[in-house]
Design a binder for these strands. Structure first.
Lengths: 153, 153
DNA sequence: CCCCTGGGTTCCTTTAAGAGACTCCGTGGA
DNA sequence: TCCACGGAGTCTCTTAAAGGAACCCAGGGG
């Protein structure tokens, strides 16, 4: 299909979608996170078409989320998360949390997180980076920021 | 294109993508959050095709993320977030945070959050729901959970 | 009585995803 | 020396989803 690019929108959500909004991209990030760094691994784990995997990897590398680097004398490459990509994993963790809560079914979650700081199996929670209290959608007012469309400064 | 459904995968991330992974869906949620509840509002704000908007809304209602309800004697409807949908906004907030940090450009964020609890402009941060310390991808070990594929219990 | 408005449906075009065969390039074994 | 192999892609063809625009229907209002 044709697809509208979101990148022109003055909205960080739309711009983020332009980076990882395409089908498969979040799953690729998850796999790279857990150590599936090579093309063949990703392709066989996900069952994604090789053509699409190539496109996604190129896009993610182009966006600075992944880095492609050789791991051998032969032309062999692996994909690793950059800092930008590592921070995107926040999104993956929150997705996992919501999916576990609302969609996991009777079997329960397929992956658990053990938090280094406390050693416990735990989940992520959104908190205010200012006061540390919980901060979810109902806990905030939305205000126009400096980057709103139309405010040319 | 054909699109592979992720719903068969034993992965909460994949299942979450089946709910909001399609193009436009996160932007629709954002708009509904900020008070754009009607078909015409959404269509003109996003510039999405009416056909696709219909499909997305039906899907989100079917998944229990939105609720469609009449607001008039005439056949007029509006879409509101359910509890399930409201909790999905965590994802939107985290996306906004990442996008602001890495993609906002010189203009800065277009929306700011004022946190009710402290009254300050703030951002979300991921913390452990057990000990309250920061909890990001590098702060956890991944362990197999009860719902892993193959563990028929 | 006719038109307006909200909320869709229909139809056609364009393009992206799926599937699978094919290529290219170093290396390792015979 | 030559061949097979494995990783990492490319190519080609088919199918289906997004875009876009016209059309439809039900209540009201003038």
């Amino acid at each position: 299909m044709q697809r509208t690019s979101f990148s022109g929108m003055a909205c960080s959500i739309a711009r983020t979608l332009d980076v990882i909004g395409e089908p498969w991209s979040p799953l690729i990030l998850r796999d790279v996170w857990v150590g599936m760094n090579r093309f063949e691994q990703l392709q066989s784990d996900l069952g994604i078409s090789r053509k699409v995997l190539t496109e996604r990897l190129n896009h993610l590398v182009g966006q600075g989320v992944l880095e492609r680097r050789p791991y051998d004398q032969r032309p062999r490459y692996e994909y690793v998360l950059t800092q930008k990509g590592t921070e995107l994993l926040d999104l993956i963790m929150v997705m996992r949390g919501w999916g576990d809560r609302w969609l996991a079914g009777e079997a329960g979650p397929s992956v658990l997180y053990r938090h280094h700081a406390c050693g416990e199996i735990a989940n992520v929670e959104l908190r205010c980076d200012h006061c540390g209290e919980p901060m979810r959608a109902g806990d905030v007012d939305l205000l126009p920021g400096p980057g709103v469309a139309g405010s040319a400064t």
